[in-house]
Design a protein around this nucleic acid. Structure first.
Length: 639
RNA sequence: GCCGGAGUGGCGGAACAGGCAGACGCGCACGACUCAAAAUCGUGUACCUUCGGGUAUGUGGGUUCGAUUCCCACCUUCGGCACCA
């Protein structure tokens, strides 16, 4: 997938796959077991306590009469704090002792069971083993509540020198790096990697542990209480409960209604449409009600593009032949804000559809391009900040082409940029220049070699003010029109390359340079050939479609500029015979020389020694080295 | 704290693969046209200078004949994630 690394990483983090072990701890004096997830089974000997999330289901069964009040108060307070508060409030560790104990399955040690809100119910098992010596959070917790902090991992180097001494080294912070196991019974001397495996395997033999994989993915409510969304195909039957709508009755369609309004009861507007809601149970045929919640917007945004290529197919999702021709999407341009929701879930949908054989590809978008955001006054545009630029006003004043061109010209598309009102003025002026240039030469049917000669034939011009363009009577020579042809090839080359490289701002500047060159040409020669103008219209078309189409017609074409071929270019024709080379002395510019392409090195160097103020800077000095980078530069090193 | 992007004139930005820093545009100044203005067109526009030149791409080093570009360390700033065991 040709996607930005950043997006791939954000998705990987969002999924949060984590390889580790599940370890079971018996609760002392009960039949209960607390299971924890850990990526560091090698630190199991260092566990000095257990922590459950406040909402963990075992909490009420573990508390003892004398801890009940304190624990219940803590749970209440923790649950009252919303998840938002939990993040913004200080990370100071809080907790309460339940009064219960668990047994460490590897060494039989008694571990006090605490509850604390730094353990999250919806990740892993909602319970952790506290290993303060080798986990920062556990270290903070153990420090706050004066729990023991033993060392069970020693740094590799220290262990190699003297493992006894390394095992006895005190800990003043959590050492989270991998190392060598110490104070761990028969496992001493193993590396962390070996230990994770060995400890888990030992536990597995006793039925107390296993390898497992955990994900950060969480549940996400898929339903919305509104009319506008795909109905969820479930029927609620009094007798049978929730029953899926049979496949032959799919899809469930929204009812056509004049209006839909909130019910005021907190239910979806669909709940008030009785002829739709009331149905029969597909299983028992008795009275039943349809599910009235609908799907969120992103349910459809995940796969709509598959349907777009074959929207009227009544038999299947889409015709496989059409899918082969069109999909997956070649290029997807969108904002980074969709990195983990829309773009990730779209991938899930497509992988599912691939797995059930509905489509033949398993990634939706081959290439992803994230465009930046446009800021105004240093902030995202928003109504509440009052810094919104209305596109309608801009279109009204300058036209859609000017607005579009300015948005492209503002800066590299992948970066954020700052809106500047006067910037669009420049684009408007540019388009006006293009308009005048083409219109004052459009109906002259001038060929490149006869540009000057044909000028006189242009008696009747396009009408209006444009007709009065000043024309200097001079003849264009054959050599000069070769220069014009070069400009044309250069423009086609630069616009094409920059367009393909997505450097749209520089593609626009290449267009401007081309127009400047054509205007200069007109100033000197009085006219310009039709091919040059046609190239301009075609190159301009993707950037300023309206004006380009109009100009194309004025250049005498009946078909649209969008159906004609994109201008081709010959890189050879862009090359100039005479190139200007900078000449440096000790890396400092001292002059320039004009040389023929492919001139022999000694000739170039000889010319270089004469150029500009080079002479002054090399006389009386010893030339140590002369560097000639053909087509680029000459550098004379003196001492 | 971790991860990622960005620092270049008054402003937005350009510079292919290490080769004339500032393309293109905005702004500004002056000029042409005009009774005047607008529009348009032209010229100029990094900084300092004893007019020889010198200094400049966030800062400090390094590599190189030559660095905006490559390497090391740092500063600023904008995003994203944030107790994930």
């Amino acid at each position: 997938m040709d996607w930005p690394e950043k997006v791939k990483k954000m998705q990987a983090d969002w999924i949060g796959r984590s390889y580790g072990s599940e370890i079971a701890f018996h609760v002392e004096g009960a039949n209960d077991t607390i299971t924890v997830f850990t990526t560091r089974a090698d630190t199991l000997f260092g566990a000095t306590y257990m922590v459950l999330a406040p909402e963990h289901p075992l909490v009420p069964r573990i508390i003892t009469p004398d801890t009940r009040a304190a624990v219940e108060e803590y749970v209440e307070r923790a649950l009252a704090r919303s998840s938002v508060d939990r993040m913004t409030l200080t990370k100071e560790k809080t907790g309460a002792f339940t009064g219960g104990y668990a047994i460490n399955p590897i060494n039989g040690r008694r571990l006090p069971i605490w509850i604390a809100d730094y353990v999250l119910m919806d990740y892993g098992t909602g319970a952790v083993m506290g290993v303060p010596g080798h986990d920062e959070r556990d270290f903070e917790f153990a420090t706050a509540f004066r729990l023991p902090i033993p060392r069970v991992i020693a740094p590799v180097e220290a262990a190699r020198r003297d493992i006894e001494k390394a095992a006895a080294m005190p800990l003043d912070h959590a050492e989270t790096d991998y190392g060598v196991m110490v104070n761990s019974g028969g496992f001493d001397g193993m590396t962390s990697e070996e230990g994770k495996k060995a400890v888990t395997e030992k536990l597995a033999k006793d039925g107390m542990g296993r390898f497992t994989v955990n994900y950060k993915m969480r549940d996400w409510v898929f339903s919305r209480q509104r009319y506008w969304g795909e109905p969820i195909p479930i029927v609620h039957c009094e007798k049978c409960g929730e029953v899926g709508v049979p496949e032959e009755d799919l899809p469930v369609m929204l009812p056509r209604v004049e209006r839909y309004e909130p019910t005021g009861t907190g239910e979806s507007p669909l709940a008030a449409i009785s002829e739709w809601v009331n149905t029969t149970c597909p299983k028992c045929g008795g009275p039943a009600k349809r599910e009235t919640n609908t799907m969120p917007q992103w349910a459809g945004s995940c796969w709509y593009f598959i349907r777009y290529i074959d929207p009227n197919n009544g038999e299947q999702l889409c015709d496989p032949a059409k899918a082969d021709a069109w999909l997956p999407v070649d290029l997807y341009v969108g904002g980074i804000e969709h990195a983990v929701l829309h773009l990730l879930y779209s991938r899930f949908y497509v992988k599912f559809l691939y797995d059930i054989g509905a489509i033949g590809f398993d990634e939706p978008f081959a290439r992803l391009f994230n465009q930046g955001m446009v800021y105004k006054d240093g902030a995202k545009m928003s109504k509440s900040k009052g810094n919104v630029v209305s596109p309608d006003e801009m279109v009204e004043r300058y036209g859609a082409d000017s607005l579009r061109l300015y948005e492209l010209f503002m800066g590299p598309p992948e970066l954020d940029s700052e809106w500047n009102d006067s910037g669009i003025e420049g684009m408007y002026r540019f388009l006006n220049r293009v308009w005048r240039l083409v219109n004052s030469h459009a109906d002259r049917r001038v060929s490149a070699t006869a540009a000057g000669a044909a000028r006189r034939a242009s008696g009747q011009a396009t009408g209006g003010a444009d007709a009065a363009a000043p024309v200097a009577p001079r003849r264009a020579t054959g050599r000069a029109s070769a220069a014009l042809e070069r400009e044309r090839h250069r423009a086609a080359m630069e616009v094409t390359q920059r367009l393909e490289a997505f450097k749209l701002n520089t593609a626009v500047s290449a267009l401007m340079s081309y127009v400047n060159a054509l205007n200069d040409w007109v100033d000197e020669n009085g006219s310009v050939d039709t091919a040059s103008l046609e190239t301009l219209a075609r190159l301009l078309a993707p950037f300023a479609p309206h004006i380009a189409e109009e100009l194309w017609q004025r250049l005498g074409h009946d078909e649209s500029v969008f159906v004609v071929k994109w201008p081709e270019y010959d890189p050879e024709k862009v090359q100039e015979d005479l190139v200007t080379l900078p000449v440096q002395v000790n890396g400092k510019l001292r002059g320039t020389i004009q040389v023929h392409r492919g001139a022999p090195e000694d000739e170039v160097l000889a010319a270089a020694r004469e150029a500009g103020t080079v002479v002054r800077h090399i006389t009386g000095k010893q030339i140590v080295k002369e560097i000639y980078a053909p087509g680029k530069i000459v550098n004379i090193v003196v001492r």
